[in-house]
């Protein structure tokens, strides 16, 4: 199981990577490589050049400002897991990151790689969708809902690369988050997953609830909820297309999505109360 031949090159700047990508439509970016390497090994992708972006200065930075939390494309998943600043500013992502793969893959896997790959079961994409993040690319910034188009398919223009993920920061007096998923084995691709953030503003206004579903649907979905109730979640899930595979059919995924959404919501509510 060896890749087809390719040329390996290291980009030192985003501009350089961008130029190389523009010059060669068959070139691919490698970030952490945790998804690309198996695809290369199985010869499911056969790039002419593999552009390593790990050496680009600044791409591995986590920046927390008053309005945004920005993660560079090369931020390793383990860095999210270990970041005290993110646990504070973006607790849902900190919570979800522990569901991504296994410790060794999180040590190499990156934020940008996961986003660009657009696996429907990806927890990072689900959190991005749930919290209304923007995908930053060399071409443009995309709202998450405009970026993820279909399984393994994104709006990333040819020749462009993902450079980061930018989350809005919402001021909150109290915040609760919840994350739940079901997979065949712990750490496997989720058959269904749910992410929830519940925010109480300082002024006692109506709580803001964001509840997203992943794994079950072709792309992660932010549910349009009339109320934080089981019936409302079920109603929001009803029109959604569910995926199926030999492990789980659409019916199971729909029920699991509902159950997990309620678990995540419950967890978030308990955190807010606490």
């Amino acid at each position: 199981m060896k890749p087809a031949p390719f040329e390996y090159i290291r980009a030192e700047t985003v501009l350089q990577a961008q130029e190389w990508l523009a010059a060669d439509p068959e070139a691919r970016v490698i970030a952490g490589g945790q998804t690309l390497m198996p695809m290369l090994a199985m010869r499911l992708v056969r790039p002419t050049r593999v552009i390593d972006i790990a050496g680009i200065a600044g791409l591995d930075e986590i920046a927390v400002t008053a309005d945004h939390v920005t993660l560079g494309a090369m931020v390793r998943q383990v860095a999210v897991e270990r970041s005290a600043a993110l646990a504070q500013a973006l607790p849902l992502l900190s919570k979800a990151i522990r569901f991504v793969g296994h410790p060794p893959t999180r040590r190499r896997g990156t934020i940008g790689g996961s986003v660009a790959n657009a696996d429907p079961a990806a927890e990072i994409a689900l959190v991005a969708m749930t919290l209304g993040a923007e995908v930053l690319t060399t071409a443009d910034a995309f709202a998450a809902r405009d970026f993820f188009l279909a399984p393994m398919t994104t709006a990333l223009p040819a020749g462009a690369m993902v450079t980061g993920l930018r989350f809005p920061r919402v001021a909150a007096a109290r915040r609760g988050t919840g994350f739940a998923e079901v997979a065949m084995r712990q750490g496997d691709y989720a058959m269904a997953a749910a992410a929830c953030e519940l925010v109480l503003g300082a002024g006692g206004e109506v709580p803001s609830l964001r509840l997203g579903i992943g794994g079950a649907t072709p792309v992660p979905v932010l549910l349009d909820l009339a109320a934080p109730t089981r019936d409302a979640v079920a109603a929001a899930l009803a029109p959604l297309e569910m995926m199926h595979d030999p492990n789980a059919g659409a019916g199971y995924r729909r029920r699991a999505a509902l159950a997990l959404a309620m678990q995540a919501l419950d967890e978030a509510q308990r955190e807010v109360m606490a």
Binding site: V182, M184, M191, N247, A248, G249, G251, Y252, R255, A256
Partner: peptide
Amino acid sequence: MRPALLSDLLE
């Protein structure tokens, strides 16, 4: 006995 099989039966 996969989860979906069990769940579908119960359903």
